[in-house]
């Protein structure tokens, strides 16, 4: 689904943070914006919100140039989690090159998580993306809160899927960069197979992920 212009030597990648309402998708992007160096990324664009709830999406863009001169822009989007914004979710999900699924760790949210993941599967199918080929990372957020599912239960549930599962507290700022990095690495693997990043463009997995995840200070 990648946008690639070989003449202009430009490639646009799209990562999408998906998940149920209030699971912390925007907080993830805010934290990335705070934790990552200004160099090589743009400002976080928060499209209009209502009562602090995302209506359209948030966008955090990254920009890097491969040794070959290939300019790569990575646009990280969030989708609105509320059920009624499904049309927007579909629009944002279109042509995604990687998805981070942000779940709410609280036991009380298990049903919402399941419904949202079902919605992701359905919308991926609608926009024509094969979930088995899509770089997908699962983040269990809000680990700082009480009443959360224990880690082993989460690992037991997701283990058979093969998707990497990362625990986080976006509020406290941990697990967020790891999620992004894991997503970047998995996306790199998929892109490398198709576009020979390492060979043709001299861009290794390490340098791709490293350029995106440059911590401040």
């Amino acid at each position: 689904m990648i946008e690639y212009d070989s003449e202009e030597q430009r490639m646009i990648l799209k990562f999408v943070y998906y998940g149920p309402a209030l699971s912390g998708k925007t907080t993830n992007l805010l934290r990335l914006h705070d934790l990552l160096a200004k160099e090589g990324r743009g400002d976080l664009m928060v499209l209009d919100t209502k009562d602090d709830r995302t209506i359209f999406f948030d966008l955090l863009p990254f920009f890097l140039v491969a040794p070959s001169g290939l300019k790569i822009k990575v646009k990280v989007y969030t989708v609105p989690g509320q059920v009624q914004h499904d049309a927007t979710r579909k629009a944002v999900l279109q042509r995604a090159d990687g998805v981070a699924y942000i779940a709410d760790s609280r036991r009380s949210e298990a049903k919402n998580n399941a419904e949202s993941f079902g919605n992701l599967e359905r919308n991926l199918s609608i926009v024509g993306i094969d979930i088995d080929k899509l770089p997908l990372v699962i983040q269990y957020n809000k680990r700082d809160l009480p009443g959360i599912l224990p880690e082993e239960e989460i690992r037991k549930a997701w283990g058979p899927t093969g998707f990497p599962v990362i625990l986080s507290s976006a509020l406290e700022g941990w697990g967020v960069v790891e999620t992004f990095r894991t997503l970047a690495e998995r996306a790199y693997d998929a892109l490398d197979r198709r576009h020979d990043f390492a060979g043709t463009h001299g861009l290794t997995r390490e340098s791709f992920a490293g350029r995106l995840v440059r911590r401040t200070g």
Binding site: E3, R10, F57, L59, A91, V92, Q94, S125, I126, G128
Partner: peptide, 19 residues
């Protein structure tokens, strides 16, 4: 109109075009 494997209509629009 494109459809997916289960016959659902596939949408073919996308936001965030390069400018």
């Amino acid at each position: 109109m494109p459809t997916d494997s289960e016959g659902r209509r596939r949408i073919v629009y996308c936001v965030g075009e390069e400018r």
